[in-house]
């Protein structure tokens, strides 16, 4: 049975009348036209659909829209401040941690959650958090470099010469 849901997305309030069991992912993409959260598996295994709910990385493909009611949702579209990228977005760009880019919004939001805990994480905790996500381009070395860079653990990797 459809009912009205109050959603707070990227600082804006939306009222969506829909089935409470419908995945939040579908509502974001189809009703709110926010397509940065993407379908990858439909079973919470790959992380492509990740958004922040109350600051925590959450898989929207297995989250019913009713669970997200009246809670602050941040999607990738709401992460930058105007033209200024979030430091994690900037780090992914600086490290060229993207090939096809389809999974990258989810990866970035997971890293934002990890780094928001305060204090620099260990490499082990970065690997543990980021292993919740799949990148089929297998761009993991760059993703690791980007998160370490954003965490202040490593300087930006220069990518100018042929030697690496």
């Amino acid at each position: 049975m459809e009912r009205e849901h109050r959603l707070l997305v990227n600082g804006r309030e939306h009222r969506v009348t829909t089935d409470p069991d419908r995945p939040l992912l579908d509502v974001l993409r189809e009703d709110l036209e926010l397509s940065g959260a993407r379908y990858g598996c439909g079973e919470g295994e790959c992380g492509a659909c990740t958004v922040l709910i109350e600051g925590r990385a959450t898989r929207t493909c297995i989250t019913p829209v009713s669970d997200a009611q009246a809670r602050a949702i941040t999607t990738i579209e709401g992460l930058a401040q105007g033209d200024t990228l979030h430091p994690v977005q900037q780090a992914f760009l600086d490290e060229q941690a993207l090939q096809c880019g389809y999974c990258i919004p989810g990866q970035i939001l997971r890293a934002v959650d990890l780094l928001s805990a305060g204090g620099p994480p260990s490499r082990e905790s970065i690997v543990a958090a980021m292993s919740e996500h799949i990148c089929r381009c297998c761009n993991y070395p760059r993703i690791l470099a980007a998160v370490e860079h954003a965490a202040g653990l490593a300087p930006a990797t220069p990518q100018t010469g042929a030697e690496s």
């Binding site: 940065g36 959260a37 993407r38 990228l85 760009l93």
Partner: peptide, 13 residues
């Protein structure tokens, strides 16, 4: 790259 990290990129889906 910027479109990838901001979610602005439009994939076929």
């Amino acid at each position: 790259g910027r479109d990838s990290v901001t979610g602005a990129a439009t994939f076929p889906s």
